[in-house]
Amino acid sequence: MDFAANLTLSALGQQILVGLSRTTILFIVASGLSLVLGVLRIPNLAHGSLYMIGAFVTYSVAMALGGGAFGFWLALIVAPVLVAAVSFAVERGIFRHLYDREHLMLLLFTFSLTLVFNDMVKLIWGADYRSLSPPEVLKGFVTIFGLPFPRYNLFLLMLGPVVALGLWWLTNRTKIGKIARAAAVDREMVGAVGINVSRVFSSVFVIGCFLAGLGGALVAPTQNITQGMDHAIIIETFLIIIVGGLGNIWGALLGALIFGLTDSVGILICPQFAIVFPYAAVVTVLLVRPKGLLKSTW
């Protein structure tokens, strides 16, 4: 094999790894969205805003503590928790009263919410973009396939399975997960056997939004933290859960893999139109399987 072929092969291997680390973030955010959509039937467009808030809070907490490693790790916990707290207030204050509304109305309502959230971000953090560097241990590169690979992406790669396992445990092994899965299929039934559905819904909403915040926190060191980062993520994650099957967490994983991998491999094939690849992949899948790859709870 000549040198050029070797290079492309290792470049491909590396791009796949980059794609997989991107998949981690997409999966975290998309699984939260899918959880809320599947159980509460709310197409929550504000999910992207919560992701953005998560990123900004991570920046602020890390900076407030001097920008060091401790600040970053603390921010990684504080940001999702804060986002979860905000979402708890929103759920108790507003969404609780809207569960029986038409989906279209809910969609528009959450869209209005994004307008409010986005201006709140502008109000607090201003219109400038921010950037955050990862802590010392995760800075720099390791060599994989003979090419430098960012340590932080390696960290994301290892985190992905942990989060997936945690979600599996939550939905299959905990009481609230089991009830939530049952409620996703038949809400009246669960209510009829005397379970407090309202509390389950509230918990699921908060967990889903926590995941949005976590995704935002994790993405913070990898890109500019900016107004408008919510717009990109929300359409991407929506397509991911559509392709995976609405409300199905493993569908979200599958969709995130498709999206992340086609995106990063697309950069090798045709950098200019790299962004087109994941969208084209989604459309291709939907043309064959309009209801998504895995079983939808809808």
């Binding site: 209005s112 409010v116 502008k122």
Partner: peptide, 19 residues
């Protein structure tokens, strides 16, 4: 400068009150 927030709040009120 924060007109989208006002718009968002007005929309939410309208959706809540005039479905």
């Amino acid at each position: 400068e924060y007109w989208t927030m006002v718009l968002g709040i007005v929309l939410m009120m309208l959706i809540l009150l005039l479905p």
